[in-house]
Amino acid sequence: MSFRLKGTSLAGLAATLFPFGQSPAHEIVGNRFFPATLGIDDPGVNDELAVPTVDSFHNGDDPPVRQRDISGEFSKRITDDFAISFGSTYTFLNPTDPIAPGANGFQNLDTTFKYRVFKNPEHEFVMSVGLSVEWGGTGSEKVGAESFNRYAPNIYFGKGFGDLPDTFSWIRPVAITGQVGYSIPAENFTTTFGIDPDSGALITDTEFNPRVLNWGGTIQYSMPYLKSAVIDLGLPDFFNHLIPLVEANLQTPVANTMTSGTLTTGTINPGVIWVGNTFQFGVEALIPIDWQSGSNIGVIAQLHYYLDDIDPHGIGKPLFGGSTQPASPFPR
Rank of each mutant, 00 (worst) to 15 (best):
Y225Q: 02
H241L: 03
Y221W: 08
I273Y: 01
T259N: 05
F238T: 09
L250K: 00
T218F: 09
F238D: 09
T265H: 07
L263T: 11
L250H: 05
T267K: 05
K227M: 02
L242N: 14
Y225E: 01
I231L: 14
N256A: 01
M258T: 05
I243Y: 14
N256R: 08
N240K: 15
M258D: 15
I219C: 00
Q220M: 04
I243C: 13
G234W: 12
I231G: 00
G234V: 13
A229Q: 15
I219Q: 09
A255S: 13
L233Q: 03
V254A: 09
Y225N: 03
P253S: 11
V272R: 03
Q220Y: 01
T257A: 06
T262E: 10
T257G: 04
V272N: 00
V230A: 15
L235Q: 15
P270C: 05
Y225M: 06
N256H: 04
S228P: 01
D237C: 13
P224F: 03
H241E: 08
E247I: 08
L263F: 04
I219D: 06
A229T: 12
L233D: 02
V254S: 08
H241S: 09
K227Q: 15
Y225V: 00
G217N: 12
T257P: 03
T218P: 00
L235T: 06
A229G: 04
G271P: 08
Q220C: 00
P236Y: 10
P253Y: 10
H241G: 07
P244N: 08
T259F: 07
K227W: 01
T264H: 06
G234H: 11
D237N: 12
Y225F: 13
T262F: 01
S222Q: 12
T252Q: 10
I273T: 14
G266C: 04
G217L: 13
Q220W: 00
T218L: 08
T265S: 05
T264M: 02
N240Q: 11
D232E: 11
V230T: 04
G261I: 07
I243F: 11
G217H: 14
N249E: 15
E247R: 07
F238E: 03
F238G: 03
M258Q: 14
T252C: 02
P244C: 06
S260Y: 11
N249P: 10
K227N: 11
A229F: 10
N240D: 12
P244H: 09
I273A: 09
L263E: 13
G234R: 14
V254C: 01
A255N: 09
P244I: 07
K227D: 10
L235E: 06
T264G: 02
V254I: 14
W274H: 11
V272G: 04
L245F: 08
L250D: 04
T218S: 11
T264I: 01
G261W: 03
G261S: 05
N240G: 07
G234C: 11
P270K: 02
T264A: 00
P244D: 10
G271H: 09
I231E: 14
I268Q: 04
S228I: 03
D232H: 13
L245E: 03
S228Q: 15
V272Q: 00
V272K: 04
D237M: 06
G271I: 06
V246K: 05
L242Y: 07
L235D: 10
I219T: 13
T259V: 10
L235N: 13
I273D: 07
Y221N: 06
I273S: 13
